[in-house]
Design a protein around this nucleic acid. Structure first.
Lengths: 342, 342
DNA sequence: GACGTAATTCAAAGCGGTTTGGATGGGTGT
DNA sequence: ACACCCATCCAAACCGCTTTGAATTACGTC
């Protein structure tokens, strides 16, 4: 069932039928309803490909995921996608996802642009120095970044958690509780989000005239064993930390395991604060969550990002929009005052 | 730069240029290379939408994710997607993902079919009674199931881990070690994979004339707190289990936490075997992995599924292919013989 | 009753490719 | 020298929709 057949069944021109269905004003109300009814009866739906060709809009948004990024951010990324996906479909957009090797990212974007595959792209996991914004500008491909690229805060559109502030506040909480040997298990610090968390962590110390402790600072892919192994090693060292700031729930779970293995009790002997992306399969809620955390729903971020892209950037690709999401600081069971030396 | 312009620059017809680029034989080698060179020089790439309209193939595969499924399978799902995505792009296919509310799944498929959005779809997380295969057949949309629908094993194409056998073997291992009070923390048992795991668990018992213990059987969304809360409750009961079979690493981590909270040692006091989907952010490997597990890479499954869909099913939509993936049973640190009563 | 205007409707021209059904021309066999 | 056959290449149709520009009809006005 295509437009031609439908218009013949109605004894109307394709023009009129098309206009009736697409809500153009130059169609009488009566005709429109007649068309709509017939379309429903005959089960007509416009061919997507044809419409795309005719309008020049692909009605889809691209997500290019570098393999390396995916390895690291896997679950977080999926949650973002879920949020974005819902918003896309509400607006009639498709989401197309390309998982590519790192060295093929540029080629992937070029292909999207030259073949006119999508109307815009979402950029994930920006690094402190990231070449994607320049490339996308060159290609004329509208985009929005989940995160920020330093130096391009005012030149690109983005949505980002206020990572610096979140980690500064969390660190201050630990300092207020008396902790002075605080470990930081960060993500890889060439990632912008990790650099900002590190900066917040440092700032909280420096503002009180305190120094961070080099032996207690780590940066790596945020896996569970990373958390466990690092924490184990630190806890067994001559001068162990009394608290941990952790960049991911997954890693924090590893830290908790290590603390248990050392026969210590989390929240009493050792404090832990983690960033919590509010992943659906790792709920950390309730009156008193397991982990004290800085929380910001990455799913909401995805949803909001999609909305900004579709409503602000697509209609006017030169618009620059940016939005900060503040993380909540939520007190759970994993923090407590510095234990007094028994 | 479109085909018309390119052909003018070459002083050839669009037909010839199109054929040269698409590898048709009726073009001389010389002409072909001349065309290819010029195309490269001018940066020509065929417009995706136009090609789709002309060929009638969308060169894309759809994944419709019901919200409920997503909640549950989030990380596993993402890993599958990653595997499939790589295979897709190698074959020139796009992956389009729709996250929809459960009650909109049917509508989503109907839309894909009527608008000709994708050439085929991948079906995720089949339930013991699942209406999607029938719908997709009605719509004439080729598909492959990741998992199986009971009763349709020979009527549909699928790829699936041999869940029954995996859990049967794992349960036997525990029984061999002397365990007689084995808890099962399963996924929701209206999901086919969970039903099969349950069946394997039961079979291992029944084959030895043993009964499973109703109080020790649970089925729920496979979150971390589910594991922790269930295990805690069971361990504190008058007749606690001595071993756990768990359907997901995430849940197993919760179990491990509960064991720690009870002051017990995993592998010595309490044994745990989990299914391990080989998620990249939860590596459970090394010489002696943390968890004894039944392991099957869901990423490989995705990759293989995509391959079957593209290479077997698309060329001939009536083909029925099915493939079993065997899970490895890997001994880690979380299992040991039944402790002798001290 | 002629005329300007607004409200509807339509035929046809794209959009940018692929594919069908010839045309053209050089080489071969007799 | 002639018929015939490939090897190449091309003009035009087609995919199914949107949109431009024009035609038709209806209506109120002077």
């Amino acid at each position: 069932m295509n437009l031609k057949e439908l218009s013949q069944a109605l004894e109307l021109s394709q023009t009129t039928v098309s206009r009736a269905l697409n809500g153009y004003p130059e169609v009488s109300a009566e005709t429109r309803s007649r068309v709509e009814e017939m379309a429903r009866k005959l089960g007509y739906a416009p061919n997507q490909q044809a419409r795309r060709l005719a309008t020049g809009r692909s009605m889809s948004i691209g997500h290019v995921i570098p393999r390396s990024l995916h390895e690291m951010m896997n679950p977080v990324f999926m949650e973002f996608i879920a949020g974005a996906g819902e918003t896309y479909s509400r607006h009639g957009y498709d989401m197309i996802i390309s998982v590519v090797e790192d060295h093929n990212v540029e080629a992937a974007y070029r292909e999207i642009a030259s073949k006119k595959k999508t109307d815009a792209v979402m950029v994930h996991g920006p690094r402190s120095s990231d070449e994607r914004p320049a490339l996308l500008k060159e290609l004329g491909l509208p985009f929005l970044i989940h995160g920020r690229v330093p130096g391009l805060e005012h030149a690109t559109s983005w949505i980002d958690v206020n990572n610096g502030r979140a980690f500064e506040r969390a660190t201050n909480l630990l300092l207020d509780l008396g902790h002075r040997r605080i470990a930081l298990l960060n993500g890889l610090e060439d990632m912008d989000f990790a650099a900002r968390r590190r900066a917040g962590f440092d700032k909280a110390h420096h503002d009180r005239g305190l120094q961070t402790i080099p032996e207690l600072l780590r940066a790596a892919d945020m896996t569970e064993p990373y958390g466990a192994d690092s924490a184990l090693e630190m806890l067994k060292s001559p001068e162990p930390p009394t608290a941990f700031m952790v960049s991911s729930m997954i890693t924090a779970i590893g830290v908790a395991r290590a603390i248990g293995l050392c026969g210590l009790k989390i929240g009493r002997d050792i404090s832990v604060i983690t960033h919590d992306d509010a992943l659906s399969f790792l709920p950390n809620c309730g009156d008193v969550p397991i982990f004290t955390c800085t929380r910001s729903s990455v799913r909401d971020a995805g949803s909001r990002a999609a909305q900004l892209l579709i409503e602000k950037i697509l209609p006017n690709p030169d618009t620059i929009v940016s939005e900060h999401l503040e993380a909540e600081l939520i007190i759970g069971q994993s923090t407590g005052p510095l234990p007094t030396q028994a």
